[in-house]
């Protein structure tokens, strides 16, 4: 994997790469995924503007789905907001692991909060995969271009799904829903680092059990258990190897 290729550098080159990378798949995936969200939101009683703003401001599908599902079943506001928050709790460790990778050095609080707001699994996974090939001072621009491109696709997809202007056969819709997790799985296959790989395998193993026992906090359990054991294994392997 570690080929000696030329690093991408320069504002225009990096923005072009970000847009092409977004259009190569992620923008389409988000468009179709958010179409599904748009139609569910309509069914639950949300207006088109509310649905589009949910995608723009929440910007985390598991939380958006929790919001729509609990609203449809008539839960109270507090329960809905709490469930959405819990479903999106992954943003805390994701922001922590992602922001330093942009190697921006010192930057203002406002800028960092905007970066954090734009983060999604898609940009997290794609950027961590592409950053090694991008000159460090241009990584932030790559991220902003990529993240805003897919966010735009997601908002458009939400509105298209809401208005139901694209009616696809059910069998085809299933394939389109499936490509979203599939894309993440393929991107994650390329993750380097022993500790990270162990953590991912253990996260998958843990969630199978946690999902049956504690379905509402299964992701938190998978993250903390899988990540801690993966971290410990990675450390002990490293120190053992260094001897």
């Amino acid at each position: 994997m570690e080929k000696l290729t030329t690093m991408v550098t320069g504002n225009n080159a990096v923005m072009r790469k970000a847009m092409l990378d977004a259009l190569s798949l992620p923008a389409f995936i988000l468009f179709f995924t958010m179409m599904g969200f748009g139609s569910l939101a309509r069914g639950a009683g949300f207006s088109a503007e509310m649905s589009a703003l949910s995608s723009l401001l929440i910007w985390g599908l598991p939380g958006q789905l929790a919001m729509v599902e609990l609203t449809a079943t008539g839960q109270g506001i507090i329960a809905i907001v709490f469930a959405c928050s819990l479903a999106n709790a992954r943003f805390l460790p994701m922001v922590v692991s992602f922001v330093p990778a942009m190697s921006r050095g010192r930057s203002g609080l406002g800028g960092m909060l905007l970066d954090a707001q734009l983060l999604s699994i898609n940009s997290w996974a794609v950027c961590l995969r592409e950053f090694p090939g991008i000159e460090s001072e241009f990584r932030h621009r790559y991220y902003l271009t990529f993240a805003s491109s897919i966010l735009l696709a997601a908002v458009i997809g939400t509105l298209v799904g809401y208005h139901g202007s694209v009616l696809l056969p059910a069998v085809m819709m299933l394939g389109l829903i499936f490509i979203s997790p599939l894309f993440f799985a393929l991107v994650l296959l390329g993750v380097a680092g022993r500790a990270e790989r162990f953590s991912m395998i253990l996260g998958c193993a843990t969630i199978s059990i946690a999902h049956t026992l504690f379905p509402s906090v299964d992701l938190l359990i998978a993250g903390i258990v899988g990540g801690s054991v993966g971290f410990a294994v990675g450390r002990s392997w490293k120190s053992g190897h260094g001897r």
Binding site: P93, M94, S97, G230, G234
Partner: peptide
């Protein structure tokens, strides 16, 4: 450690979406 937690969480989420889905 936090990086490992985020990888475990994201991988777990993807695994759940494929193996234990709540969607269609």
């Amino acid at each position: 450690w936090v990086t490992c937690v985020s990888y475990a969480m994201v991988a777990g989420l993807v695994f759940r979406m494929i193996i234990l889905p709540e969607s269609q």
